[in-house]
Design a protein around this nucleic acid. Structure first.
Length: 568
RNA sequence: UGGGGCGUCGUCAAGUGGCAAGACACGGGACUUUGGAUCCCGCAUCGGAGGUUCGAAUCCUCCCGCCCCAGCCA
């Protein structure tokens, strides 16, 4: 059978799959599946799961199905189904013609339940939800048998049929597996496998009045599809004995469940329930807000599918619960975008600079390389004129040590253009704020090099005032205030979101000045704003002539470190 | 002594008895028309204590810590 391409050591999941193919289990076949419940948008944690399932199938020459686990009609919506389809495709995976729904199997799942009743291994229980809980016992004490546990098969069959026919209200009865009320594994204490729900299902409408529980539907769906390796996250480890029990009792095809640790990322909220709160309470604009850890959010923010796949590859797969530093994710986008993103000049906080010895009527264009990392990226024309904007932070009247940028009397290079010297500082008389710089340029330095060989320490980005396009730029920060996982857990415990959410997770900059080539930037375009970071044209709010950009991630900022160290 | 799982660098993670991979982060240096990129260099004795062994992160014993399970959610 096929062996995976990786030369390095295999993670434990792949090792297990390799062991099975080597031993000829399942005839050496590998078939996986990704089973999301359509009750929210997919986030990067889900991406770890489907990346694993699709990749393993691919590496072992097998197949991976996409199956919606839609057994709870009260939580599921078609909007979520559509977003999930889109997001998986976006990340680069394809399920071919194997798109399934657990609801496709409702009929067969029901037949299996009847079979289990006939085998004397399931019964209709009349206990209320509260009573069921009491009878279940606790973590340390065994439960006790339901008074309905020994109902005759025929009676069970009759009652189950009436449940199906919708004769009873929600919660009136359940179908339960007859296993062991004293099991130390609570999942085995006669778990409910069918409940009555008079709810409208997003696909089957009102044809069903009873719905299978996860444990019943999941393993059997895997079995029906011929899945060989059912790879899921670690909280289902306690469910594996039940998964196995159903399959064994029914004597049907028996896949192998394997559990791995979920992905946690510092500064990110990755619980669907909490994410739903963040959306519903308006902390963000929606599931695709550029601050969200959803794939829709990351996409809008400018993350590439390649960078996310690389991140997941580096994160690895193990059983240890761990939290990955968000810095690794950021490193992965920078690495990818550094190679791909065209460089452009954009001034976020403009400071006007008049080049006094540059003739008013004069204008010229410079040839600017689009990406020094990619010779095939070509170049573009950059217009220059007497008045330009530079970044306010690139000038200091009283520069600290190691500040290599512009200051009174100092000479720097305007990238691709000329060497300029600051001759005069114009301030607002009332506030003392610097409003304009008067500079001179050296005509001999066209392109940025001085014929006399003199060097400058700083190179600044700039935009010609006459040609600049106004833009809105959104600087996105982490949604969580604190990096530690405690914050995540606290949110789960119901702590106030206000205490956990970073109050300045988004800063909107208006009146930014960008080079003219960006005027009609197509939504979703990615750039490196020279010396600043990677930015992506917003797919929702950007308009031709009035572009809007989201900062994907900043560039590594050595100067910030130096300045910070000096401040101490 | 309810059951199950997990503990290797700041953060992930290899390693399955024979000198503790790699990545990110961090620190230092080179180079640079992005204080970007690139390139060098540095950075752990494996939760603890005993034991077995010529030799242990890997085997045994005990201890400590963290996670999951008491939905008619998934």
């Amino acid at each position: 059978m096929a062996t995976p391409e990786r030369a390095e050591s295999l993670d434990f999941v792949r090792a297990k799959v390799a062991e099975d193919t080597a031993s000829g289990r399942y005839e050496g076949r590998v078939h996986t599946r990704f089973p999301p419940e359509p009750n929210g948008y997919l986030h990067i944690g889900h991406a770890k799961a489907f990346n694993l399932n699709f990749s393993i199938a691919d590496e072992f020459g097998g197949l991976c199905n996409l199956r919606f686990d839609d057994t709870n009609p009260t939580a599921e919506e078609t909007e979520y189904v559509e977003s999930i389809l889109e997001d998986i495709h976006w990340l680069g995976y394809d399920w071919g013609d194997r798109l399934y729904y657990a609801s496709d199997y409702f009929e067969q799942l029901h037949e299996y339940a009847v079979d289990l009743i006939r085998r004397g291994k399931a019964y209709v229980c009349d206990l209320s939800p509260e009573e069921t809980r009491e009878y279940r016992g606790t973590l340390k004490e065994p439960g006790k048998d339901s008074p309905y546990r020994d109902r005759p098969v025929e009676e069970n069959l009759g009652l189950f049929a009436r449940m199906k026919a919708g004769e009873f209200p929600d919660g009136a009865r359940t179908l339960r597996a007859k296993i062991d009320m004293a099991s130390p594994n609570i999942n085995l204490r006669d778990p409910v496998i069918y409940r009555i729900l008079h709810a409208e299902h997003h696909r089957t409408g009102d044809t069903w009045r009873i719905y299978p529980m996860y444990d019943w539907a999941h393993g059997l769906s895997d079995s029906i599809e011929g899945v060989t390796h059912s790879i899921c996250s670690i909280e289902f480890e306690n469910h594996r004995p039940l998964y196995d029990w159903f399959l064994d009792e029914l004597e049907v095809f028996h896949p192998q469940q394997i559990e791995f640790a979920r992905l946690y990322v510092s500064r990110m909220i990755l619980s669907k329930r909490r994410l739903l709160q963040v959306v519903e309470r308006g902390y963000v604009d929606g599931w695709d807000d550029a601050r969200m850890p959803t794939l829709a959010g990351l996409r809008r923010r400018g993350y590439t599918p390649e960078s996310i796949r690389e991140f997941l590859k580096r994160v690895g797969v193990a059983k240890t619960e761990s939290e990955i530093d968000v810095a690794l994710l950021e490193h992965c986008v920078r690495e990818d975008l550094n190679a791909k993103a065209p460089r452009v000049m954009a001034v976020l906080d403009p400071l006007r600079v008049v080049i006094e010895n540059y003739p008013e009527e004069q204008g010229e264009e410079f040839e600017a390389v689009n990406n020094p990392e990619d010779p095939d990226a070509g170049s573009r024309k950059l217009p220059f004129s007497r008045v330009v904007f530079i970044e306010r932070a690139d000038f200091q009247e009283d520069p600290p040590k190691k500040f290599h940028r512009l200051a009174p009397g100092r000479e720097v290079r305007l990238k691709h253009a000329y060497l300029v010297r600051c001759e005069k500082v114009v301030k607002d008389k009332a506030t003392g704020e610097v409003v304009e710089l008067r500079c001179s340029y050296d005509p001999e330095t066209r392109g940025g090099d001085a014929p006399d060989g003199r060097k400058v320490k700083g190179t600044l980005h700039w935009v010609s005032a006459e040609h600049a396009v106004d833009a809105e730029v959104r600087i996105l920060d982490y949604l969580l205030r604190e990096p530690d996982p405690e914050a995540d857990t606290a949110a789960d415990a119901g702590a106030e979101l206000d205490d956990l959410i970073n109050p300045s997770s988004r800063t909107v900059l208006k009146g930014c000045k960008v080079e003219p080539s960006l005027a009609d930037s197509p939504p979703g375009s990615r750039y490196q704003f020279l010396r600043q970071g990677y930015f992506c044209t917003d797919s929702v709010d950007s308009r031709p002539g009035a572009p809007v950009f989201n900062r994907t991630v900043s560039l590594r900022d050595t100067w910030a470190k130096i300045a910070k160290a000096a401040a101490k």
